[in-house]
Write a protein that binds this DNA or RNA. Structure first.
Lengths: 223, 223
DNA sequence: TAGATTGTTAATCGATTAACAATC
DNA sequence: TAGATTGTTAATCGATTAACAATC
């Protein structure tokens, strides 16, 4: 399977677009669209058709020259590539506000990441139900991960605890950590981490807002 | 002020690193570090020193050749550039789980984005207190935005409502929207939007997890 | 002075876009 | 056939990295 190995040497920029392609295609599927050209699909995502075809080219052969893409074929192909052809059992570590928000975020299930464990150390939270799942004591972490074959963990604990918890997760066999703590986790090779920094998001927005305000000031001054 | 205009023509990649620089510098400041070289700072962020200096070069003159950066000068300079030298009054639209999580996320205040209004249409939520702020009826949106001089809005409403609410926000004078709904908002020029797609994040993580699993399978097969 | 550092430009690298043959 | 489309390679563009003079 040389193809498989190669199919993982893909730029991050391309990887980040795959979910967008999939989302749009599912939308088309829902309204009964059967075929779609690279031009149509790209236009609806505000990118160039050649970029879309170039992205697809990493994985090869979704259609053949002259024929548009078949939505019904492309959707499962992308799900396969992204790794959600089968549901991916997921845990949420930290049942604070953010953890609760994510636990209750129904799309997580729909998108292929059923939550099979919610954990916290706070006795006041343990036992509470969220989406039919009880919040469990962290003591049960390793046991539940094993039993439920959980592969991905969403980490919403305070940043002081993030590294310690991450170590336990890795030890327990987790190979994907979606980290919401503003900490750079150190993990061994063979474990993927994605950091979600909400503060970075709002600050880069702030930069652009500042630029807009400045340009408005200039316009007024120049009148 | 040609400098200002120019200082906004900065690649997105650089803009996204500014908050990381600031965060690390504040950490250094907290432990009493006074000077820091580009090499030290870059190393702690796992980037190249030349990249850091290249980024700073867009804004010019944080130090002079031969002298390292002074933390006490760099922090306010970056805050100025990012646009958080003065607190930026912020609103949260949608007091569901995610809205609540963000409202209670204390760092929002600390980082320069005090929440000055939380809004929802659900009568069960209106009146509830979150961090000393009542959840208000959407009817009050325009009034409060004006009174509190709110510039940035965090949008956590269902995607079906996102565009309608965004239109109202723009009309009311908001110029920055931090959008958590999986919808591409259409806004006029002079309004900045940043989309936070949690589903994209977890799916790109899933892609990498799948690749790790495949490479492990290959290792076993090849033994 | 010698070693370290910044600001700044040039070289390299990688991602995006264009072009086009093959195909329907 | 004519027009539209994909897969694929080449050209372009932009971001990262290296290099180095000026300075401390």
């Amino acid at each position: 399977m040389v193809k498989n190995r190669k199919s993982c040497e893909v730029p991050d920029a391309t990887i980040h677009r795959l979910p967008l392609y999939l989302e749009k295609l599912k939308l088309l599927q829902a309204i009964g669209v059967e075929d779609v050209s690279s031009r149509q699909l790209a236009e609806s995502l505000d990118i160039k058709a050649s970029q879309l075809r170039h992205d697809f080219h990493y994985f090869g052969g979704f259609s053949r020259p002259g024929r548009p893409y078949q939505v019904a074929k492309l959707v499962p192909a992308l799900e396969q590539i992204i790794g959600i052809a089968e549901p991916v059992p997921t845990a949420i570590i930290g049942a604070g506000h953010l953890g609760q928000a994510l636990a209750n975020y129904q799309n997580l299930d729909v998108q292929g990441f059923p939550v099979r464990g919610i954990f916290d150390t706070n006795p006041k939270l343990i036992g509470l139900e969220m989406r039919g799942q009880p919040v469990r004591d962290m003591d049960e972490l390793e046991k539940v991960i094993k039993e439920e074959k959980i592969r991905i963990a969403i980490l919403t604990v305070p940043s002081t605890q993030a590294q310690v918890v991450a170590n336990r997760l890795v030890e327990a066999g987790i190979i994907g950590i979606f980290n919401f703590a503003p900490t750079d986790l150190k993990v061994p090779e063979g474990v993927a981490v994605r950091n979600e920094r909400l503060a970075v998001g709002i600050m880069s927005l702030s930069f652009k807002v500042k630029c807009i305000l400045q340009s408005q000031d200039e316009d007024i001054t120049e009148v």
